[in-house]
Simulated assay, not measured.
Amino acid sequence: MAYGKSCHLPVEMEYKAYWALKFLNFDETASREQRRLQLLELEERRLNAYKSSKLYKEKVKKYHDKKLLKKDFQPGQQVLLFNSRLKLFPGKLKSKWSGPFTIKKVRPYRAVVLCDPQSKDPNRTWVVNGQRLKQYHGGAIERLNIVLCLDPG
């Protein structure tokens, strides 16, 4: 020890330098071939992952399409409309389906023109997505009108 520091003898320094040179002076052709094999293996794994994810997506799509119900609506048929905007004051037992409404016309791509037979203006119509509809099989529906008074005074 010299002044509290460790001391390296010249023989140790020479040995470490020799070891580092030996480690860094590896065979270039062997390392190049090894790197090429690693890249090929990586590409093969990527392709396998792509194929497996594609197969998975096809299976999920087939399963999802199998669960979908075909809804064929005819003009004059009565349907219920799903109200997806019922989030301001959600009630536990309040139904999100409103209606019944009568189908006036069926357009391409599942667009349906509805009219409300119980409204004041029977000519009032609107277009909705056919996926928001379900067939109405009859029965009495109690229509609830909720009036909220927001005036504190």
Rank of each mutant, 00 (worst) to 15 (best):
K71H: 12
T125R: 08
Y15P: 00
S53Q: 13
V113P: 04
L148H: 13
V128S: 04
D27T: 04
S6R: 15
R132A: 10
I103P: 14
S98Y: 04
W19D: 05
R124G: 00
L144T: 14
L133S: 07
K59G: 00
E33M: 07
G4A: 13
K51T: 03
L150S: 09
T29W: 03
V113A: 01
A17R: 13
V128H: 06
H64L: 15
L55R: 12
F82R: 14
D65I: 02
V112K: 04
L40Y: 04
K59Y: 03
Q77D: 13
F89K: 01
T102Q: 15
R124P: 00
D116H: 07
N83C: 03
L40D: 13
S53G: 00
L93R: 08
F73P: 09
K22C: 03
V147K: 15
L68R: 15
K61A: 12
L114I: 08
Q131F: 14
D151R: 12
F89W: 09
K57V: 00
L88S: 07
A17I: 11
P90Y: 05
Y109V: 13
K54A: 08
A20S: 13
R32F: 12
A17V: 10
E12Q: 10
G4W: 05
P90L: 07
S52W: 00
L148Y: 14
F89Q: 01
Y136T: 09
L86T: 00
H64Q: 13
K51E: 08
R107W: 14
Y50G: 00
T102C: 12
L81Q: 03
L40F: 04
Q118C: 02
E44M: 11
G76E: 05
P108I: 10
K87D: 03
F73V: 09
E142M: 11
P117D: 11
P90K: 10
S95N: 09
L80P: 07
E33G: 02
L21H: 11
G153V: 11
F89R: 04
K61P: 02
G139N: 11
R107Y: 15
K57W: 02
Y50W: 03
V127K: 13
V60T: 09
L47H: 07
G138Y: 12
L24P: 05
V11P: 00
F89N: 04
L150I: 09
S84A: 06
I141L: 15
G4E: 11
E58F: 07
N129K: 14
S98Q: 12
V127D: 02
D151M: 10
D72C: 09
S31W: 06
S6I: 14
K57N: 10
R107S: 08
N145L: 14
R124C: 01
K87W: 00
W97C: 05
G99L: 05
R45P: 01
Y109W: 06
D121Y: 06
V112R: 03
K62Y: 02
L93E: 09
S52I: 01
K22F: 14
K94R: 13
S98M: 14
L133A: 09
L80N: 06
Y109D: 15
K22D: 06
E43P: 01
R85Y: 05
Q74W: 09
K66I: 00
G138S: 11
Y3I: 08
V128N: 08
G130D: 08
V112Q: 02
R107F: 13
L88D: 07
P100H: 06
G91I: 01
L37T: 03
